[in-house]
């Protein structure tokens, strides 16, 4: 097939992402100017960076090969982290369920809904590390600060997700239990809980896994567990031991993610 196409003299270009050229150029120049300003105004100390490079090399040299000599300390740290994660998860779940009911607009009265949502917003607004710093100040170093931190972290996530699930329930089942004369508590028990149960179990497993990861991080600011062990190892220049701890944390998290992922896949 041989067709000749008539020349039209017309060209085509993809329309720009931002149609208004003034806004487009103002945005490009504005971002470039900000980046330049930020880089020049931040206090980069080039001498210090130069000195730091050999120090970093020394740390990495010191870290290899990783040392598992103090395996007992490593093991104890992990056991404490796991305890913190499990206790915090259970505590968090126990508090999350009532808060979730309070925060679901279809089952909670307006005033309770406002309170419930407020609790969730507060629980979610700070990163666990910041919460951990506050609790370490309040109750001192150690696992209690870690447990309290992760409990709040659990509420922020589980209560929010569970409240959203409650808002999606089939209302017909609630009507059925109301129509037989069931009270509010019994209606929640029979018409709502069975509907949200699979999600609740999935969220619990996810949160346990998530708390295990977070417990390593909050330990670094003094809230107990393997994070504290890691911090001490750094403090004593035991870089080989620190690397051993880091490798173990990665290993444990991989395993726990794999397990929780598999359970949740089979659940939903």
């Amino acid at each position: 097939m041989n067709t000749t196409v008539e020349k039209t003299g017309r060209t085509w270009k993809k329309p720009p992402f931002i149609a208004n050229p003034a806004i487009r150029w103002a945005l490009i120049i504005g971002i470039a100017a900000y980046v330049w300003w930020a880089l020049t105004s931040l206090p980069f100390d080039w001498d210090r960076i130069q000195q730091g490079i050999p120090r970093a090399i020394r740390i990495f040299k010191g870290a290899f090969p990783p040392s598992f000599l103090r395996g007992e300390l490593l093991f104890d740290g992990f056991m404490e982290s796991i305890k913190i994660a499990i206790v915090a998860t259970l505590l968090g779940l126990a508090l999350s369920v009532p808060i979730a009911f309070a925060s679901a607009s279809n089952v909670a009265p307006k005033w309770l809904y406002t309170i419930g949502r407020g609790v969730i917003i507060v629980a979610r607004s700070f990163h666990p590390v910041i919460v951990a710093i506050l609790f370490v100040k309040a109750v001192g170093f150690g696992p209690l600060a870690g447990i309290l931190t992760l409990t709040i972290y659990s509420i922020g996530f589980v209560a929010k997700m569970l409240a959203e699930r409650i808002e999606e329930i089939d209302w017909g089942q609630v009507e059925a239990i109301k129509s037989v004369g069931g009270g509010t508590f019994v209606t929640m028990l029979y018409a709502v809980i069975p509907q949200i149960m699979p999600r609740q179990i999935g969220l619990s497993i996810y949160q346990l896994d998530s708390n295990l990861r977070a417990s390593a991080i909050v330990g670094i600011v003094g809230a107990g567990g393997i994070g504290s062990t890691l911090l001490n190892a750094f403090g004593r220049y035991d870089y080989d031991f620190a690397l051993a701890i880091t490798l173990c944390i990665i290993g444990v998290i991989l395993v726990s993610e794999a397990i929780s992922g598999r359970i949740r896949r089979n659940l939903w």
Partner: peptide
């Protein structure tokens, strides 16, 4: 729609 509690 019957409105049974499906999971029970």
């Amino acid at each position: 729609g019957f409105n049974l509690i499906d999971r029970l």
